[in-house]
Simulated assay, not measured.
Amino acid sequence: MSPRLANIPRKYCLLITGFVFLSFSLSANVQAQVATGEIDTKTSRVYTFVGKTGFGHEHAVIGEIKAGSLNLGARSNAGKIVFDMTTWKADTAEARKYIGLKGATSASTQKDVNANMLGSSVLNVRKYPTATFEITSAVPVKQNAPTGKSFYQLDGKFTLHGVTRNQRLIAEVTEKKHQNHVRTSFTIKQTHFGITPYSKAFGAVGITDELKIYGELDIAR
């Protein structure tokens, strides 16, 4: 016992100790509640498959999540995901492996592709540095799934390049120790968001209007 507590009656010492323990427990509980549903931006990633037209090339793009949360089971106000469009990078080794594209892309080609993708004629990240998915609901759906996996239907509004459209997708959820791993995918058309697909040489080289987007998210339980 510390010198300061030596002269305090035992019953008061027990009360003080109990109060400190209760305060610590309540604080930890509040922190856990706040963290529930929060997306781990360090480990979560988004990948995009970009198809080709004419003599163009297929591309794999990786991007980061800036912030967000997803409350699985919520029928309203289920969360929001903010995509950091300034981090989008084309044809990294990780992105190509995830999408399933063979071979590698030279540093100079990556630089050119990124400049076109992030520039004012396509994503225009200076004007639109983020995209968002406002999730209205995240309700469970019945699926024939392996043990430990469940599925949720996510409905909400996806905003890209300043344009907002309704979006529905199915998410596969796997339970981990302290997190839920959420895997999902959906397709969009660039023209639906006011983006003109990149092309050159009068259309002889270009990319497809449709993009396939994959999400790999870790969410606190």
Results as ranks from 00 to 15, higher is better:
L160I: 06
G100V: 09
F158R: 02
G162E: 02
V125C: 06
A95H: 05
L101T: 09
G162L: 04
A131R: 08
A95I: 02
K157N: 13
D84R: 03
T164P: 10
K102V: 10
Q167C: 03
T86N: 05
T86A: 02
I81M: 11
T132F: 10
K142G: 06
T136M: 13
G119Y: 04
K142C: 00
S150Q: 11
S108K: 12
L154N: 04
K97L: 06
V141G: 05
A171D: 03
I81R: 12
S120V: 02
L123T: 00
V82C: 07
V141I: 15
A145I: 01
K157W: 00
V163P: 06
G119M: 04
A145M: 13
K142R: 13
P140N: 11
L169R: 05
N124D: 15
V141N: 05
T87I: 00
K142H: 06
R96D: 03
I99H: 07
Q167W: 04
T86E: 05
G100H: 11
S121W: 02
L169K: 07
Y128K: 03
A90G: 01
G100F: 10
K97F: 01
S121E: 15
D155I: 00
A131Q: 09
T159S: 12
Y128S: 01
R96S: 04
W88Y: 10
R126T: 13
G162C: 07
P146C: 10
P146M: 11
V113N: 03
F158C: 02
W88A: 11
F83C: 02
S120E: 15
Q143H: 08
S150D: 11
R126E: 15
L101H: 09
P140G: 11
T164E: 08
G156E: 08
K89P: 01
D84A: 12
R165P: 06
F151Y: 13
K127F: 04
